[in-house]
Structures are given as C-alpha cells and as structure tokens.
Design a protein around this nucleic acid. Structure first.
Lengths: 350, 350
DNA sequence: TGTTAGCACTTGGAGGTTATGAGTGCTAAA
DNA sequence: TTTAGCACTCATAACCTCCAAGTGCTAACA
C-alpha cells in the first residue's frame, strides 16, 4: 500500500512524463509538487516506488519514468475521478454527430475520424452488432444493358446492393422466379443459414431459371458477406507516425496491416470478463495480446443501442498517452454516440 | 552532344546509383564497364558530364550521382529501347486482371494494388472518363421501414445507389410521381445539367408530392456526385515510407493528403501537350508541378477504351527509381488493362 | 524515526579531435 | 589521348573530454 505522498509523487511522474516525454528527476518533482520536502526525501520515496515496480530508470543516473505497472496503478487509482471534458471538445463531438446520416456506417466512420482528430491518436470502431440477423428483404432491379442490381435488406436495417451482369437472353420472368425462390426460402432466415444454403441447395434450384447462375450467386454472396462481417472502421492511421519509432518502415507497415485486420483487432478490443462494460476499458502495453502493440495502449468503450446491439469504439495510442483526457473523451463520445444511434434507430423502429 | 563513351558512363552511373543508392566513383565504373581505360580517363569524362549538368557530386570528394537532367537524358536517350518485361511479371499482370468483375471500379482499384506490388512504388489510377455522360435511368425502390433505395444509371454504364429515409406517411404513389418527374425531365440529360436543375427547379416540383424533400434531394445529389467525380484510386501508399526521408512525420502526412486529393493529382498526371499519349510519360523531380514531389518521379500512361473514354494509370516513386523496368511494367500493364476493359465493355455494348 | 545537506559517482549527450577510406583534380610523362 | 602518380578533400566512425542532470549513500539533525 502506498502512502499518500508516494501516490502524489507517482501521479506527478506520470503527468510530467506523459506531457514532456522526458524522464523526471527529484528536483523537478520538488518544484511541481509544492510539498515542502527536500529532493533527498523525494529520492528516498522514488527508491521505494521503484522497489514496487511502479517506476523505472532509463539508465543508472537518469530520472524516472513510469513502468507499465505504474501506468496501470495511475489509471486504476490516481487519475482524477470525475474527468472533466472540455466544453470545447464536447461541443465538437456533438456537432460532428449532429448531421443527418443515411447509414449507420457513415455515423461510425465519422466517429473514428472525429475521435482521432480530438485525441491525435488512432481511433477504431465496430458498428452495432446483434447476433441473430435475418434476411428481411430481397430485390432484383433490372437496369438495362444486361445489368441487374441485387438488393439485400436485413432485419437490423442494413441495406446492401450490388450490381451484376446477366446474359441478354434472360427475361424479366426469370428474374422474378429467382426473386420468388429467395423470398420463399431465404427471407426470414438468419444470415448464416442463408450463406450456407447459398452454397448447397439454392444453386440447384436457380439453375432451372438461369443457365449461368455463377454471376448471381457470386454477387449475392459478396453482398451477404458485407452484411455479415461486422464492419470495422479506423480513423487517423497516420497519427501512428507521430509516436512510433519510425526508423524501420516495416514495423509501421506491419502495424497498418494489423489495423486492417478485423478479426485480430476485434479480439484485442474485447474487454476481459472481469471488467465493467459500462466503463472505458484500458489495456496497457503487454496487456494487449499482440507483440506489435507492446508500446501502445488501447482504450475501449462498449456502447449499447438496446435491441440493435452493441458496438465498440476505441483509441490506440502510445503507452505514454494522456490517460485522463483520453479516457474522458472516449467516455463522453460513447455517450453521445449512443444517444445519436438510439435517435437514429428510433425513426425506423416505429 | 555526348560521345558514345560518355553515354556509356552516364548510363552506368544511373544504373549503379538506382540500384545501390550510393554515389559511384571512377574505379567502380572501370570495373562495371569492361572498357579498357584507366580510372583517370573515366574521371576526365566524368568532369565533362558534370560540366554538362548531367551528373553531380554529393560533396567535393564523393563519387557522382545523376542530376535530374541526367535522369532525363537517361530516360530519353539511354534506356533500353525494347524494354523486356519479365515473363513472370506479365503473367502476374494477366492473372490479376483475369477475374470476373462486376464494376469498372473494381478493375481499376485492383490495378493500383497490383501495380504497387509489382513495382514497390505507389500506384495511381483514374478510371475511363468521357466528357458527356448522361443520366440514363432512375429508380426508387421502397425497402420497408421508411427506407428507400435510389438508383442512378448513366449511359456510361455506371450504377450508383444510395439509401435514404422518408416519412412514414409517404405512399408508393408519391414515390412513383417523383420517379416520373425525374424520368420525364432529367433522364437523357447530361449529368452537369441534372446537377444544376437539382438545385433549381426540381425541388419545387417535388415539393408537391413530398413534404420534406431534403432527404431525397441530398441523396440524389450525393449519388450524382459519386457518378460525376472521376474516381481516383491509389495503391501501395505505404511504399512511400520506404523511400521518403522519414525524419519528419508531417512531410509524409502532407504527401498522403496530396495523394487523396483527386484534382491535384489529376492535374499532375496530365501529360504535357508535346508528348505522345500512346507512350509512358515520365516526369522527373521538379518537372512535377508540386514542391512536395520534387524528390519523386511520376510515370503516367493513358489508356484508351474507345467510346468509353480514356483513363490513366501512374506510378509515383523516388527520382532514383528503376526507370527501365518501371516504364516497361507500366506500358505492359496499360496494354493489358486496355484489353481487359474493352473486353469488359463489349458485353454491355451489344 | 523521518528528514535533510552534502558528496561521490554514473550516465548520455554535445563538442572536439583524429584516423581512415573513397574519391577527386591536376600534372607530367607515355 | 591516355595514364600513373600524388596532393588534397570530405564524410564517417572512433575516441576523448566535459558538463548537466540525476542518483545513492552517509552522517547529522529535529
């Protein structure tokens, strides 16, 4: 258990280091703390904190920087409880979410851009997911010139459309027959079942009406894929350049690829069971299950839009990020985003 | 006018420098050239080439590197005429273009990825443009849940669709009325006229059927925008990291932003009037009209798909790029892409 | 017992020096 | 015209020295 003075010192070290990036020594701390003790006393306390593994040196005679455990302690016990998010930031968030959006995707994509701008770090988001999405509508719209637009609608309100080409000998009746097959057999089914049947019995039925069903099946499959895969958005990738050791381009490339990988990122963002999912989850350094990110911290917040599911927003930044501010921002953004989405869905739910 | 020996030396300097990145000295050249002259002779010739401004030193006692003018001379007069593109590369190009594509955009986007992979530089592409595109079709498809999908088709074969929300009191008849207005008055018109009228008289007419036409008009406008703006594709942005001085993240960020700017890049890619548009155009260093790119070279090729217009593919790399190979690749790719696109459009043209 | 002044010690970094190797330009001879 | 030879230049790396910032420890102090 730390004494109050030790806590104060640790807090000051974290604040100073995250702000300046320089290791902080005993004299600096005396100035900062406005406690009337000498630097020697501070040094003694720092030795204790180092024994606890909360701070460390860069070299024998340097000042101290927080260790990963130190950041962890700071986040858990020392950061200001009621984080005050600037009125300025709040109004920027509100304004950015204020526009009228035609799709959830736009809202989420815009959120990542906004979050990355506000924080100067990299922002990630997963849109609201529900486990049991069903196909609720299907259309084929002939566009002339041998082109047809296939439209899928899910009961979660997602719309996916994709064009494809058909032979010129295909009649409107044939298209209608196909629509009928899909409506009769697939509409109302969960997307997973739809995908499965698309690979098994549906092709056989369709062949009766369409000599070469490949184009249609491929199109349907692609649109379905897009509707199924929980889409993943990244904003402010370039901010990684600001706080990565750029000596080696391959590291950055690897990072970029990692960021594009839905499943990997998804896995990392999932908070551990223990955590309170209403709060912002903080993973620091090696707490993230990926070696590439051992010098980064990942803050995740889960937002809940009732029966429209839950999604996540997250911030990826250096371990020496400004935790108080960033956690505050992410928490506030989560709230505003939730409101916006509830509001958005309300319109369709009536 | 250069002597044959001087040409040989300049060529060797360009080849060696683009390959190794090190300035090349007289002794190295003696080894490379297998001409039986001494290094002193080479030195004399190099002094002449330097007087001509074709090569330069990094410092007083260093070897020589090509100047921008030197690269220019190399590209114009010294690179191998019939550039042999590897059978391996050619088959990769063919294979990558071989798949079945539902949209031109997919072909073009895939091309940039392929080109950037093959060259290890950054690839750019503009899809085929024709000057006078007209609206050839318009649909509104109700999707249930107050959602409607608007579909635009142009006579160049582009399809743009976008969903939007309507009040629950809007009937099918009203939608049909709107479709009729658009069909009667806008279909057959050039997109520029459509856009213009969308801002002037169309809203007035629509208001008769739709109390709040804003959602519809915005949707229509956005879809139209997408169809109008000649879309621009970039592949292999990350390769910039390999050959940029990465000391300063802001430079890279600026470059990235420049690459995202359609109009700027478009302007830069346009070859000068003098040039033969069937060949690959080469802009070296300050020949590119942008200070950010003064250490880069831009190779551009125009491809022509008959009455479906012309587009461009381009490679952005360092001035010390491998010109022979890259020009060869770009030329070959242009040819393959042209074939693919002609083939693609043929299907719809019958 | 906790705090403090004082001091010896460590370290990275800035600045300076030196040696080395790769390369040049010039001169004079072939 | 070509070449050997040589003095000269410069970037780079290695090494030294000095300095500021910081530490740990000891002994004295409240």
């Amino acid at each position: 258990m730390l004494t109050d003075r030790q806590k104060l010192i640790l807090q000051a070290i974290v604040l100073a280091y995250t702000e300046t990036g320089h290791a902080v020594g005993s004299k600096k701390l005396v100035e900062m703390l406005s406690i009337s003790v000498s630097s020697a006393t501070i040094r003694n306390e720092m030795a204790v904190l180092e024994d606890f593994g909360l701070i460390q040196k860069e070299h024998t005679s340097s000042g101290r920087i927080p260790s990963l455990a130190g950041y962890r302690y700071y986040v858990d016990h020392l950061k200001h409880r009621d984080i005050l998010i600037g009125q300025n930031d709040l109004s920027m968030i509100r304004q950015s979410l204020n526009g009228s959006y035609a799709k959830v995707d736009e809202i989420i994509a815009n959120s990542t851009n906004m979050l990355s701008k506000l924080t100067s770090y990299t922002a990630l988001a997963i849109k609201p997911e529900i486990s049991d999405v069903r196909l609720s509508g299907f259309r084929l719209v002939p566009l002339g010139n041998h082109q047809v637009l296939a439209i899928l609608v899910t009961d979660s309100g997602e719309v996916e459309s994709q064009q494809f080409a058909i032979g010129k000998d295909v009649s409107g009746d044939q298209l209608e027959a196909i629509v009928r097959i899909v409506n009769d057999q697939l509409v109302g089914q969960p997307l997973s079942i739809v995908l499965q049947r698309l690979l098994t019995d549906i092709p056989i039925q369709i062949t009766q009406y369409l000599k070469t069903p490949d184009g249609f099946l491929q199109t349907f499959g692609q649109a379905l894929d897009r509707a199924t895969s929980d889409q993943f958005f990244v904003g402010g990738r370039l901010n990684l350049l600001d706080f990565s050791s750029i000596d080696d381009p391959t590291t950055i490339k690897d990072l970029y690829h990692l960021l594009s990988n839905k499943t990997d990122m998804h896995d990392m963002m999932i908070p551990s069971q223990m955590e309170d999912s209403t709060k912002v989850s903080v993973k620091i350094g090696d707490e993230i299950a990926n070696d590439l990110l051992k010098n980064y911290s990942l803050l995740t917040a889960t937002y809940d839009v009732g029966n429209h599911g839950r999604g996540m927003i997250a911030i990826l930044g250096p371990t020496r990020m400004s935790y108080s501010r960033t956690i505050g921002l992410l928490g506030a953004f989560k709230q505003e985003l939730t409101n916006k989405l509830i509001n958005y869905y309300q319109f369709y739910d009536e």
